[in-house]
């Protein structure tokens, strides 16, 4: 096996080649993954005409006209506010529901626990999909909450089973002696959860919150149906697609859509940057049973 010795270090040439090939593959994957993001970022500065006729990725001139158009003329400031209110509210509700459910499953024995848990897990394998859209919407209309944020929050608030399982996995790593010590000190089941265990779950809550934030922020179908009757309630994800409409025969303003997409990415990126550390530790801790 060929080896080169430089400054007392041995360089293994085949290993170097393998490493080189690996880096090349990883770079190619990174380029493919990042291309749409770069295309969108740069495309937001072009005109639609340039976007559709030029093969160059770099704009001829950097213009903020599309950003001004979507923010000012199409009222994206309002839609961003709507999305923030709904997303934050849904994330809070989902976090509360997922942690409480997981804590009950993990720490308490109760009647039909296995059956209920099985029902939760079965949702992973049975996807009702769009079949639930209309009944859900009708329920929201019947409840009279389709003309305010409550309808949107209600529609998106069900915590996904994956969030519950992740918390359960994390709880398995927290010793039950904490619960027992709290009980000896006079804490009730609920108080043990709220005062002792909940604060200890911060990393996994961050993970779930980030996933939930991304999911609700990007939710489209149900918000589109609910806000179809009320433009003022519209969320960013829906408003971006609505931009596709130019009117009879008019061209779609793709450059404005890209600018809108770029605006919509910012909050998710910010949340990820803030939660990044907790996210990594939460994923690794929640993924293994202690």
């Amino acid at each position: 096996m060929a080896k080169i010795i430089t400054n007392n270090k041995r360089i293994n040439i085949p290993e170097l080649l393998i490493r080189g090939v690996m880096y090349a593959i990883l770079l190619a994957i990174a380029a493919v993954t990042l291309f749409p993001v770069v295309y969108s970022l740069l495309g937001g500065f072009k005109t639609t005409q340039e976007l559709m006729t030029s093969s160059s990725l770099i704009p001829k001139s950097f213009s903020f006209e599309n950003y001004v158009y979507v923010w000012d003329r199409v009222n994206f400031g309002r839609y961003t506010f709507n999305s923030l209110v709904v997303t934050v509210a849904v994330v809070l509700v989902q976090m509360l529901m997922s942690t409480m459910t997981a804590y009950a499953f993990s720490r308490r024995d109760f009647r039909f626990k296995k059956i209920i848990r099985m029902m939760y897990i079965s949702v992973l394998f049975i996807h009702a999909g769009t079949a639930t859209l209309y009944p859900k919407y009708q329920l929201i209309v019947d409840m009279g909450i389709n003309k305010n944020f409550l309808g949107l929050i209600f529609a998106e608030s069900a915590a996904p089973i994956t969030a519950i399982l992740l918390v359960e996995g994390y709880l398995a790593g927290i010793s039950k002696s904490f619960d027992e010590a709290a009980k000896i000190d006079g804490c009730s089941f609920v108080k043990t959860f709220t005062h002792i265990i909940f604060p200890m779950m911060l990393p996994v809550i961050c993970v779930n919150a980030l996933l939930a934030f991304r999911s609700v922020w990007n939710a489209y179908l149900m918000p589109m149906i609910i806000t179809a009757g009320n433009d003022k309630l519209q969320l960013l994800s829906v408003a971006i697609v609505e931009l596709k409409s130019g009117g009879a025969g008019m061209a779609t303003n793709w450059a404005a859509i890209l600018a809108a997409v770029n605006i919509s990415i910012v909050p998710v990126v910010l949340v990820y940057i803030i939660c990044n550390k907790q996210f990594i530790s939460g994923v690794s801790a929640g993924g293994v049973k202690g």
Binding site: K147, F149, L150, A228, N230, L233, L243, G247, M250
Partner: peptide, 26 residues
């Protein structure tokens, strides 16, 4: 959540809101 965006004049008896839905963004 309850009122800011869902309110319309028709609810407080002042304005009658007539909504027009169109795809003619141009």
């Amino acid at each position: 959540m309850m009122t800011a965006c869902g309110s319309s004049g028709s609810q407080n008896g002042e304005k009658v809101e007539i909504r027009i839905v169109t795809s003619e963004r141009s």
